[in-house]
Design a protein around this nucleic acid. Sequence first.
RNA 1: GGCCCCAUCGUCUAGUGGUUCAGGACGCAUGGUUCUCAACCAUGUAACACCGGUUCAAAUCCGGUUGGGGCCGCCA
Length: 491
Amino acid sequence: MSNNNPKRNKIRVRIAPSPTGTLHIGTARTALFNYLFAKKNEGSFVLRIEDTDLERSDPKWEKDIIDNLKWLGIKWDEGPDVKGEYGPYKQSERLSSYAKYLKKLFKEGKVYHCFCSEDELEAERQYLMSIGEPAKYSGKCREIPEKEVKKRLAEGKKSVIRFKVSGKKMKFKDLIRGNLEFDTLLIGDIAIAKDLATPLYNFAVVVDDFEMKITHVIRGEDHLPNTPKQILIQEALDFPRPEYAHLPLILGSDRSKLSKRHGATAVSDYREDGYLSETIVNFMAFLGWNPGTEREIYSLRSLVKEFSLEKVQKGGAVFNIKRLDYLNGFYIRQKSIKKLAEISIPYLKKAKLIKEDPDIEQLKKIISIYQERLKKLSELPDLVDFFFKDKIEYNKGLLKWKEMTDEEIKDSLDKLEELLSKIKLSNFNKENLEKILLIEAGRMGDRGKLLWPLRAALSGKESSAGPFEIAEILGKEKVLKRIKEAKELIK
RNA sequence: GGCCCCAUCGUCUAGUGGUUCAGGACGCAUGGUUCUCAACCAUGUAACACCGGUUCAAAUCCGGUUGGGGCCGCCA
């Protein structure tokens, strides 16, 4: 379909995190959906930092948000670090805009100073709730005469700027939920700024979305009650109304909004735990959305092609870590050995298993036999530590397969030592070991009698990769050494 | 308490009035597979919250009940 005025109709969406903490998984998913919607429709995706709360905002959180969004591959077309037509993209740098519209609202008599104390307001709310009334602000400061207001202001009395809410039914359409209706009679006058230079959320959002020409506001369902408030402010300022789409919430296992008490909520936590960005993206996309087919594996690129708001769910979605693990295992298995070895290095270094200059070829061999056993990178050190340690520790009982006696274990170990020492260094590889040892193991009736003690002696673990591949990587010398050590234990 | 949103297997979901005694995936269980674990394969497990109505026909439409969730800040 052709469009005569593409620029004017261009879709523009935004993610507007406040730098008061690490990038939350919920924020990341909202960012993802906005990004997908923008890219699918050839629109623009804007990153705006909502740092009006000076107390809680910190540049370090802003950095965390930007770093992790980038890590996920979610790129913005305009933002604090990307020049754009509608900047600046940090609210703390947009103060003059807010002041401008605040003055306009004052001039038009649509806002007023409120001198109520927070304690007073809190008590009022409690009282209203207790008698079953809507907990809204009474609006009593509306009536303070102008002269009195000036006097109190001159005295330096603390105040807040409130927007006068006039009662009526407010209807708006939500792209996911359909037609919604709120009774604004139930909304008290909205605090929109502390003063001319300190805007508050509901007001700053409206001004910024207007000035940044945002066409679609896609955000979490927890913002639903804010929407009528923001529309009221928009109308007072004569701004056009964007389209709204409220996403279902991400829930914890108890079906309440995902929060810290459910476990990790920061994208950085998952990143450090060794989840891949592909995993997180694929997983987040399916929290409240699906393509309507049975396909479940999607890259960011393929999501862009398939995404649509119509397929977004209405009900909240529980964050299921088991599924995340499964997906991560899948993506780990998709990685090339080279790449997987590379990204494993930091985890092995952290566990002090390798130093600055690891033997990459050796590492790749190890990784290749553990790739299919890995769910997340942070598990790697515990799985492969025995390759790097000089001496491993385990209880003698570990060497025992089923009901073997110490005597039998010793026989197996002796046999192993005898057989293995005969193998030439150049033939000490998986295929050969298998050929030689399997014959002997078969002779014993139960292969476990030979193979289990071998694997246990080499790895020191209940479970591990197979003994032949481990032996090849360890090398003849070390293998014989570990068998000797096992024999010492049995004595 | 007030307002609002929501409701298919334990979880994520397919399903938009008949082709579905409801399909897929994760999980779980069982079996297969060179000792173990993993991976893989196969099989199984398990759901339309309830009550009315509309209709020849309802998981699908309407109403109510119940249940769950969100919000009610001079945070965002």
